[in-house]
């Protein structure tokens, strides 16, 4: 059973490197985001900051932290997409970035699983 090229393409690291070569040697056509877009994004970000502060005054119980993180994530998404140009960049950059976010979530999930499933003999943590 010989591997041909299409087999190798399924192997993610190899395809990633294939993309890397393609992107890094690619032709120059930098997308210029119009001034109005930057301004609108700033205004939306400031609006969401006001929303964060106002919402923090209302007690939603256990949902408080979730709501705050949800709004923060929308703001972070706007900064990533427009200020950091991810929307118009090659998809290689967001892919690599979100792999690190994914592993952060793995660390988050497993340390929480560890903590909440512990049987504590003396409650130190």
């Amino acid at each position: 059973m010989a591997f041909d090229r299409s087999d190798l393409d399924l192997f993610i690291p190899l395809t990633l490197f294939g993309r890397l070569e393609e992107v890094l040697l690619g032709s120059s056509n930098h997308h210029v985001i119009p001034f109005r877009v930057y301004l609108n994004i700033l205004l939306i970000l400031l609006l969401f900051t006001v929303v964060t502060v106002v919402v923090s005054r209302i007690d939603f119980g256990a949902a408080n932290a979730f709501i705050a993180m949800f709004i923060a994530s929308i703001k972070a998404g706007l900064v990533l997409l427009y200020f950091m140009h991810l929307k118009y960049d090659d998809k290689l950059f967001p892919t690599v970035f979100f792999i690190s976010i994914f592993f952060l979530l793995v660390m988050f999930a497993f340390s929480h699983l560890d903590i909440i499933t512990r049987v504590l003999e003396n409650n130190i943590l």
């Binding site: 992107v23 890094l24 290689l92 950059f93 970035f97 792999i99 976010i101």
Partner: peptide
């Protein structure tokens, strides 16, 4: 593009 890719890798370590 290479410089930018390197910087994104650095941002991953920051995250």
């Amino acid at each position: 593009q290479t410089s930018k890719f390197g910087l994104w890798l650095f941002l991953c370590t920051e995250i």
